[in-house]
Structure formats: structure tokens, C-alpha cells
Amino acid sequence: MGNTIVWKPAGTAKYAAQLIMRILREAGLPDGVINLVYGDGAEIAEIALADHRLAGVHFTGSTQVFNSVIRKVGSNVDHYRSYPRLIGETGGKNFILAHGSADVAALGTAIIRGGYEYQGQKCSAASRVFVPASLWPALKTILCDEISTIRVGDVSDFSNFMGAVIDQKAWRKHMRVFEEAKASSAKILRGGEGDQKDGYFIAPTLIETDDLEAPLLREEFFGPIVTTYVFRDSDFENILERIDQSGACLTGAIFSTDRRIIDQASSGLRFAAGNFYINDKPTGAIVGQQPFGGARMSGTNDKAGSIWNLIRWTSPRSIKEAFVPPRDYRYPYLSSSVDD
């Protein structure tokens, strides 16, 4: 489409990026269209964002870094030859909300798959679950029993459901979460442990908290940590409102067999999740079928994998050609008034 790109991958994704570039070049991509660069992110951003030719930024990462990109572009706005377009996908604190009518077995499966697949290292991973008290005893038993069966190890062994987290930095972050949880009123029901002897492994962890303001329900950990909050069944509408008030709005799910409740949640959480799921885990969007992205503090919701994202990178031009151009500035009504 005429656009050229400077691609700066995360340091932990550099090998995958290099492989993708090799595949694209073998497929016929001309040199100079996509320019893969490595190095310190802040240093590269300083150079790229200061260039007067900058046309836009397509960012995936933390909210804090995207905020710094926006500030940097804003401070340079008088320097650019056109206004840069900014697209950001910054993750979220994704939720599963259950109603008393939910299928408990399906709910349990969604929590485990949504929270622990890929070690929870998805921006869409389920990390907070709101459960009515009437369902909690049965759901708690299902989750604790099933989590105990999850195998963690080398991903080349397909009998393992989970592998290691991405690096030591992530491992240490998750271990700090466990320490803080143990020091609070929260209860670690399963997991809460890590091992870095043969890799940076974190056990699939289930935590229960009774504090709606706890960091466990507000901060993104990007790991296999799921926190549950149990509410009175009569407080369903209040919990729905609290979820809607949260800043991260990437993915979310409602579990209920009552269509009226599903409709209520779909409406009440209209702006709480860019990708909303009904009786399914809030992960695994299919490219081409479920355009992906969220708003508020989860990004600009430009829907990767869709026409909406694609057209953000076009610059339309309207052309009009007159085949019989007028030769007198006077419109017919002007001539008529003069004659009268």
C-alpha cells in the first residue's frame, strides 16, 4: 500500500521476528519495505519519534510505554510534515463474570484455559473472576482439582499444558506477587510457587480475595495467576457496574444460561471489553473473524486483523474531473433576477 515500516520487536521476541523476516523475504518481500531493527527500545524510539517523516506508530506493549510515545509525539507535533497516526494495544485486566445460572463445568474450563494457557502470557488472558456465592463451593472444588492435574514443563513435550514464563524478569515479578498476596488477606488456593532451576517456571496459581480494590484485581501480571472475588448473588448488578468502572477494557466474558442476564451484561459492559465473550473464555480471537482490540486504558481499539485497522494506514484522496466546465461565474438564478 506504499507504506514502509521500521519494526522494533521486544527483546524477548527477536528470534521470532528474525524468522518471520526470513519467511517474508523468501516469499518475495522487497528489501526496505519492512526494516527490522534491534536495540534499546527507548533509544530507538527517541530517534524514530523525532524524525520529521514519521507517519504513525503501531504499538503493542504496556500502557505506560504507549503513554510516553503519545507524549513524545505530541511534543514534536510542530516538527512533523503530517500528523502521525497512533494505534496502541496495551493489554488489560481481563475478567470473567459469572451469574448464578452459569454452567459451572463450562465456567471452570474457561477459567483454566483462559488463565493458564500460554502461562497466562496473553494480553487477553483471564486474570480476574467474579463468582456468585451460590456457585463458589462447586467451582472452587473444580478449579482446585483440575489445577492439580496441570502439567508444567518442556513445551516440546505435548503432554505439558504449560511451559516456562518468558524470562527471569517476569519470573521475579510473579514471585513478588505471591509474596504480596501472602502478606495480605488474600488466600492462595493453588500454586503460589516458582522454580528457576531448569527454566523460569511458575505454577498455575489460583487466589481468592475479598478486597475489590486489591492489586490482585487491578494490576496486570501477564502470568498464570487468576484471582477470584466471591460476591453475594444479590449483588450481581453492583459487580457488573464495578467491572464497567475499571480502566482496562480489552477482553471479558459473561457466563449465564439466562438470556436476560446475558443481554443485561452485554449492555452494561458495552465499553468494558473490546472483545466480549458469552459462555466462553476471553482468549483466542480468530483473525479475520474476531477483530481484536480494546479501548480505555487497553488501547485505541483499532481492531487488529480487520478492515478498520487497515484503513488507518491509508491516505485517501478524492478526485473530481469536470468534462463540461462552466465558462461563466453567474449561476442561472442570477441571470434570471437580472432579466426581471
Rank of each mutant, 00 (worst) to 15 (best):
A265M: 12
I207S: 02
G61A: 03
W7N: 14
K169S: 03
A322S: 13
P84L: 12
K303G: 02
M21D: 13
Q64E: 12
E220P: 05
A186E: 03
G11K: 13
V37T: 14
Y80F: 11
R176S: 07
R330M: 13
K8R: 10
P282Q: 03
N275M: 08
S156H: 06
T90C: 15
R113I: 09
R218T: 10
A183V: 02
K182G: 06
G91L: 05
K14L: 09
C144H: 11
Y116P: 12
G91Y: 01
A133F: 09
M162Y: 09
S127Q: 08
L135N: 10
K182N: 07
E237L: 08
G299R: 02
S156F: 05
G120N: 04
S75T: 06
S256F: 01
S337E: 07
E208Y: 13
C123T: 15
I307L: 01
F59A: 12
A170W: 01
A48V: 15
S156D: 10
R317V: 02
N309V: 03
S159Q: 04
D145R: 10
K8A: 15
D195T: 05
V33I: 15
E208T: 12
S335A: 11
T149Y: 03
Q18L: 09
F236A: 09
P137S: 07
P291M: 01
R53L: 11
S335K: 14
P291W: 00
V33T: 07
D154K: 06
F158A: 14
M162N: 12
K320G: 03
D31T: 02
V131D: 13
N76E: 14
E321V: 13
I44M: 11
T90D: 13
G252C: 10
N279Q: 04
E179F: 09
V177M: 02
V57A: 04
F59L: 14
I278K: 09
G100C: 02
S159K: 01
R113M: 06
K320E: 03
D31Y: 00
I44C: 12
K8I: 15
A55T: 02
P137L: 01
L212K: 10
E220N: 05
Y15A: 11
I20V: 08
S266H: 04
D235P: 04
E146R: 14
L206Q: 05
Q119A: 15
R327T: 10
G56R: 08
A55L: 09
R218Q: 14
V65P: 15
V77R: 08
L189C: 09
S127P: 00
K173M: 08
E208C: 09
